[in-house]
């Protein structure tokens, strides 16, 4: 059981009469990149939100690093090492790129009831922030207002903010959504550099990204996981082909 960094058991969530998450058992091994795929409306984002703590499940449990986090609020989960990127870019648009990342560093550097020293001159925040910006190839854009970055750069910035919290698990909600071919190729390359180094849960529509990056894939249809396996197994699974991949072909 301790082999799993993240494990959900019988996780369920309903909205009215809609079963958005239906008794989901889901396991992520330490170090793997685990993709969650499924057609539109399959409940992928609802599922991610329960893991990140934005939604409280109706039933079932979530264990992270051997600890029951089912009722923990999102900020506490972040401090335990769960980081997430959003399907719709979520950054501080009115702050510089560097500020965005430095805030993520600050959130994990003890309490922020410090009222006097200028945070932007605090090297213990800005130095690690610049290192992370370098990692996602944004170091030259550090002083640009986040709102003025290109769409692809904003998504990279989101990854940088997640990395700056030094997470044990990265939850990536459609990281290449809305990107052009070139931009999404850059993002896939960036994620490939993190592969192995970080455990990742990747929710994605883009099959290029999924089959390039994933070690294992789980297929979510109508709130249920119908199959889990290696990319080759998933490709060959007739149930999956019927429910999902078939639609694309």
């Amino acid at each position: 059981m301790t082999d799993f960094l993240l494990k959900t058991s019988h996780l369920s969530k309903t909205f009215g009469s809609l079963l958005a998450t239906d008794r989901v058992n889901f396991e992520v091994r330490e170090g793997e990149t685990h993709a969650v795929i499924g057609p539109n409306g399959a409940g992928k984002t609802t599922f991610i939100k329960q893991i990140s703590g934005e939604l409280r499940p109706d039933a079932g449990t979530i264990h992270f690093a051997g600890e029951d986090i089912t009722t923990l609020p999102a900020p506490r989960r972040s401090r335990k090492g769960l980081a997430r990127s959003f399907q719709i870019t979520s950054i501080y648009r009115d702050f510089s790129a560097l500020d965005n990342v430095a805030l993520a560093v600050q959130a994990h550097a003890g309490h922020s009831f410090r009222f006097w020293r200028p945070a932007r001159e605090d090297l213990s925040l800005t130095r690690p922030a610049r290192q992370v910006l370098e990692k996602v190839d944004l170091e030259k854009r550090a002083d640009i207002l986040a709102a003025n970055l290109a769409h692809g750069e904003q998504r990279q910035l989101e990854i940088a903010m997640a990395l700056a919290t030094q997470p044990r698990l990265l939850l990536l909600d459609e990281p290449v959504a809305g990107m052009g071919t070139e931009e999404s190729q850059r993002m896939i390359e960036l994620l490939a550099t993190l592969k192995g180094e970080k455990t990742m849960v990747l929710v994605e529509h883009d099959m290029d990204a999924v089959f390039t990056l994933a070690d294992r894939i789980s297929v979510l249809v109508y709130g249920r996981i119908i199959a889990t396996g290696t990319p080759a197994q998933i490709r060959a699974n007739p149930q999956v082909r019927a429910a999902y991949l078939g639609e694309d072909a």
Binding site: E54, P73, P75, S78, F95, S112, R114, A119, M161
Partner: peptide
């Protein structure tokens, strides 16, 4: 402009993001 002030402004700018990074 202190750490406190930046958290305050961050929460104004984007609450979901602020919670997601751990505040």
């Amino acid at each position: 402009n202190s750490r406190f002030g930046l958290v305050l402004q961050a929460a104004r700018s984007n609450e979901a993001r602020t919670r997601a990074i751990g505040f």
